[in-house]
Amino acid sequence: MYTWLWRKLPGGLPLKLLQVLILFLAVTALLFFVIFPWIEPLMPYNNVTVN
């Protein structure tokens, strides 16, 4: 998959590295701001009580 992505990105090495960095940051932001908050209520460790 990574080889396929690397071959599909346009430009030389510096531009490809920049594009990979931007893609990584975009996926990370999507996970932290959309996916993780959406799935948090479904996780079993939300209701923790300590006696």
Rank of each mutant, 00 (worst) to 15 (best):
N47S: 13
T3E: 15
N47K: 09
L13G: 01
I35D: 07
N47H: 12
V20F: 05
N51D: 08
L15S: 12
I39F: 05
N46A: 07
F32V: 12
I22V: 15
Y45H: 09
P44R: 05
L13Y: 04
P14R: 09
A29G: 11
L21Y: 09
F32Y: 14
R7H: 06
N47W: 06
F24W: 13
F33T: 10
F36C: 04
V20K: 09
L31R: 14
T28K: 07
L9E: 01
K8H: 13
I35Q: 12
P14W: 07
W38G: 06
P10N: 11
P14H: 03
K8F: 04
N51V: 02
F24G: 14
L25Q: 11
L21W: 11
I35C: 08
G11N: 08
P10D: 10
L21K: 03
V50A: 05
V50P: 00
I22T: 08
M43Y: 01
A26E: 01
W4M: 10
L25F: 08
V20M: 11
Y45Q: 13
V48L: 15
V48G: 01
F32C: 12
A29C: 07
F24E: 15
L13T: 07
L15Q: 12
L23F: 08
T49P: 00
F32R: 14
L42D: 11
T3M: 11
